[in-house]
C-alpha cells in the first residue's frame, strides 16, 4: 500500500505540472509525423503498423529520458528525498512506486495512439494479433527506457545531466548490435565481449516481438533489463553521501 501511495503521488505529479501535456502532445505529433510523412504510411498501401512501430525506439530515445529525468534528480535537488526516505517505507517500495508511475505514464502516451489502429482497421484489415504484439513490444521497450532513465536520475541532482546520461545509455543499448558499433569493439575487445555487447541490444528483441513473434525469451530479456536497472538504482541511492 505504501508503494501505491508513492506511485499515485508520482503519477499525479506528471499531470499537476505542464510536463505531462507537453510530453503527450509532442509524443503524438512526432509519432504521427514520422509515421505518415516520413515512412509514408498511406502510400505503402499495406494495412499494418510496421511504419508506426519502426519509430518507437527513436521517439522513446528522445522523450522517455525527458519523462524520467526528474524522478530522483528533482527529489535530490529540492531535498524532498530526505522526507521520502525518512518515511516508514523501504527503499525498494520507493523505487518501485516511482518506476511503475513513470512506466504507466509512458504507457498512457502509447495508448493515446489508438486512432492509428482505428485508421488502419477502417482502411483495410490488419492482423490484430500482430498489432497487439507490436504494442506489447513497445510497452516493454518503454519500460526498459524508463528503468534506464530512473537509474541515471538517481545518480545526480541535475535533471539535465540525468537526461543526457539516459539518452547516451539508451543509445548504446539501441545500437549495440549495429555493425559500426561491434566493429569499434572488434578492434580491441575479445570476441566473447563483442558478442555479449551485441546481445544486449534492445533492437533484435523489440523487432522480433513487433513482427508478431512473442517469444518468452524476449519478454524475459526486457524484464531482466528493468530488474537490473532497478537494482542498480537501489545501490546508487544506498551509497549517496548526502541529499
Amino acid at each position: 500500500m505504501k508503494t501505491m501511495a508513492i506511485f499515485k503521488r508520482e503519477l499525479k505529479a506528471y499531470f499537476e505540472s505542464p510536463v505531462a501535456y507537453v510530453f503527450l502532445v509532442v509524443f503524438l505529433v512526432l509519432t504521427g509525423f514520422l509515421t505518415f510523412s516520413v515512412t509514408q504510411f498511406f502510400e505503402r498501401g499495406s494495412a499494418d503498423l510496421q511504419p508506426f512501430f519502426f519509430w518507437h525506439p527513436w521517439v522513446y530515445l528522445l522523450l522517455v529520458p525527458a519523462g524520467t529525468m526528474a524522478l530522483w534528480a528533482e527529489e535530490r535537488r529540492a531535498g524532498t528525498i530526505e522526507l521520502l526516505l525518512t518515511m516508514p517505507v523501504t527503499m525498494t517500495q520507493a523505487i518501485l512506486g516511482k518506476f511503475f508511475a513513470a512506466w504507466l505514464f509512458i504507457t498512457i502516451a502509447l495508448a493515446l495512439t489508438f486512432p492509428i489502429v482505428l485508421t488502419t482497421m477502417y482502411l483495410g484489415s490488419p492482423d490484430l494479433g500482430v498489432v497487439a504484439a507490436g504494442y506489447l513490444g513497445s510497452v516493454l521497450l518503454g519500460g526498459a527506457y524508463v528503468a534506464v532513465g530512473m537509474l541515471t536520475s538517481s545518480m545526480t541532482r541535475s535533471t539535465v545531466i540525468s537526461f543526457v546520461l539516459a539518452l547516451v545509455v539508451c543509445l548504446v543499448f539501441l545500437l549495440a548490435g549495429w555493425a559500426p558499433v561491434t566493429g569499434f569493439f572488434d578492434q580491441w575487445a575479445p570476441n566473447w565481449l563483442v558478442e555479449a555487447i551485441a546481445g544486449l541490444s534492445f533492437m533484435p528483441h523489440f523487432e522480433s516481438i513487433q513482427r508478431g513473434v512473442i517469444d518468452l525469451r524476449d519478454i524475459i530479456y526486457f524484464i531482466s533489463i528493468m530488474g537490473f536497472m532497478i537494482a542498480a538504482t537501489h545501490v546508487v541511492l544506498d551509497n549517496r553521501k548526502s541529499a
Binding site: R9, S17, A78, G79, E82
Partner: peptide, 15 residues
C-alpha cells in the same frame, strides 16, 4: 515512531 523536519523544510512545491 519519528517525525522529522529536515533542514530547509523541503516539500513538493507543485502539490
Amino acid at each position: 515512531l519519528m517525525g522529522y523536519l529536515p533542514e530547509n523544510a523541503p516539500s513538493y512545491h507543485s502539490m
